[in-house]
Simulated assay, not measured.
Amino acid sequence: MTSAGRPDSGYRLRWREHNSQRRDLILRAAAELVEESAPGAPISVRHIAERAGLVKSVVYRQFKSKDDLVRGLRGYVVESFAVELEADLDVSAGTLRGILRRAITSAAVWMEDNPRLVDLLRSGPSDTDPDAPDAVAELRHRVVTRAHETVDGVAAVTGLDPAPFARIPFVLFTMVEATLTSWVRGEEAIRGSSRAEVVESLTDITWFVLDGAARGMGVTVDPDAEFATVLTTLVPDGAARTVEPT
């Protein structure tokens, strides 16, 4: 404490960390209960508090209302899913086809394991982006932004024009997410397909789109060669040939 009786900065920092830990504990408990419950089944704040090992009043100190808690949960799920996908989109290691397959597989596994949370994301906005129509739009923005950063990084190294790829990340995310959602829900057009079959099909289609854009620029890329090595063949003569991970 300070001499004036006010908490010092170290105390405030510890208190914020404590609150953040409690908030994450509550949201993790809520996510678990959503997945364990029947579709559309109500989940009480009391059950969430019990799962988190807290009393209900602590939950309401972190969230003003149940609606506030649901928005916070959507934001928590978006963050968890986005961090995983962004890591899988790291182009510093692997072939292009392998990177695409890795990211799509990661999304397929997560969505298959968490079908109730997938529906939750589609049911409304999160607390981090209340203006988005639903949390899927926020997730799309995160992943598409990450993809654009990669494209801009490649363009900076090679001198290639990134313009032909401007809309591709949005289109590919929308296609992959919608297809995986239909698969998880068992919709007729894709019912009966194994995860491996769906992932391989989406990987091929994604590659065809990227390859078409590259060939339109007069560039041919081997999808089964190490991507970092491929980039060195695209660097203009005399330019630095070191590719930094993005």
Rank of each mutant, 00 (worst) to 15 (best):
A239I: 01
V78L: 02
D113H: 09
D134Y: 00
A228S: 13
I48L: 08
G75W: 05
G10Y: 10
V34I: 09
K64E: 15
G98E: 08
A108P: 07
A41G: 03
L210V: 13
R16I: 04
P169T: 09
I48Y: 11
A38W: 04
D8H: 11
T145I: 01
S37T: 12
A132V: 04
A31Q: 07
G75D: 02
I190Y: 10
P39E: 08
V70Q: 05
A178N: 12
T95H: 11
R241V: 02
W15K: 14
V235L: 02
V83R: 15
A155F: 01
T181S: 15
G98A: 07
A163W: 01
R14P: 07
L96H: 09
V45R: 12
S80P: 00
A49V: 06
V58T: 15
A225F: 01
S9K: 07
P115M: 13
G40V: 04
F227D: 02
A135M: 03
I168P: 11
A196E: 14
H47V: 06
F170G: 13
K64F: 08
V118E: 11
G53W: 04
R14C: 01
D67T: 15
H18F: 10
Y76W: 14
S20K: 10
M111I: 02
T2K: 13
D134S: 01
I26Y: 10
D129E: 08
L89A: 10
R142M: 10
D113N: 12
E197P: 00
E112W: 11
R16Q: 15
L100Y: 14
E244N: 10
V154E: 10
M217I: 09
P125H: 10
R14I: 00
V118T: 14
E149H: 12
E17K: 14
D131R: 13
A135C: 07
L210I: 12
W183A: 10
T206C: 15
E197K: 06
Y11P: 03
A240W: 05
I168H: 09
S126A: 11
P133W: 04
A166H: 14
T128I: 06
G98N: 10
I48N: 12
R23A: 06
R61T: 12
A155T: 12
S201R: 12
S3G: 05
L89D: 01
V78S: 05
L13D: 14
V91W: 07
P236N: 09
A228R: 14
Y76E: 03
E187N: 14
Q62L: 06
L139P: 07
T174S: 14
D127A: 08
L180C: 05
P42Q: 03
A103K: 05
T179F: 13
